[in-house]
Amino acid sequence: MASYRIYNARLASLRSMRRVTKTMKMVSATKLRRAQAAEERATRFSGRMGDVAGHVLALPEARAHEFVLPRAPVRNGLLIVLSADKGLCGGFNANLVRFAAQWIEEQRARFHKLRAAFCGRRALAALRDRVEVRNVYDGVAARPDFRAALRIGRDVTDAFAARQYDEVHLAYNRFHSAMSQEPVIERLLPVPLDTAAAPAAPGPRAEHLFEPEAPRLIELFLRQLVCLRLHSALLQNAAGEHGARMTAMDSATSNVDNLTLRYTKLRNQARQSSITGELIEIISGAEALK
C-alpha cells in the first residue's frame, strides 16, 4: 500500500485544482450574465427594428431585391462559422464543428466553390483542413460588440453584392440555457424574408413617407438586418460559450470533490495501516525481549 504521504500530495493537488475550476465557474457565470444582459438589450432593439421592417419589407420592391431573390444557378457559397476562442467548455465547440463538417459534406456538391469564414479559433483549427478558409475575424468571439457585427456584416454583404458569393450561411450555437446550446446553420443571404419580419398590414406606402425612396431604403434596411442577425448570433455564441464553460466547470468541481472524498478515505486507511504496522512491530519486539 502506498504511503499516506503520497495521498497527501495528491489531495493537495486536488485542492488547488478545485480552486481553479471553482474560480473558472464563477468567472463564467459573471460573463454569462453580462452576455445575457447584452442579448436582452439587443432583442429589444431587434424587436423595434422588426416593427419597422414590417412596413419596409412588405413593399413589392423588397421581394424583388437582389438581397432577397435566390440566385440561380448558385456557384459560390460562404459559410461563416462562429465558435469560441478557448476550450474547457464541454462539447460546445465539438458539437458545432461536427454539425458544420456534416453540413459541408452534404452541401459541397451544390456549390462550385464553398469557402468558410471563421470567428473563433476553435472551429478554425478543427475545420481548416476540410474547407477553404476565406478569412478569420479575430478577437470578437468572447465579447462581441455591435461594431464587430457591423464589420463582419458589411464585409459579407459587400462580397455578396459583388457576386463573389451567391449564398451566405451562418453556423453558430443557438443559446437555450446555460445547460443547453444547439448548433444551427441559417441562411444569411439572400435574406429569408419570412424570418426577417412579419408582413405589415397591406398598403403601407399610403400611410408612411419613405426617405430616401423605397429601393434605396430597402437596401439599407436589408444590410442592417444582416448585421443585426450576426450580432444576435455572436451574442448567443458568447453566452453559450460562457454557459457551457460554467456547466463544464461545475461538473469538474464536483468531480474533484468526489475524488477528494475517495483519496481522503484511502489516505486515512493508509495512515491507519502504517500505524497498525508500527504497533505490531513494537509489540512483537517487546514480546521477543521477555
Partner: peptide, 17 residues
C-alpha cells in the same frame, strides 16, 4: 440621407434613413 429632417409633434408617419 436625403437631406435634413425636422420632426415636430404629430408628424405624419415616416421612415427615414
Amino acid at each position: 440621407v436625403a437631406g435634413c429632417l425636422g420632426i415636430l409633434a404629430h408628424h405624419t408617419p415616416l421612415l427615414a434613413a
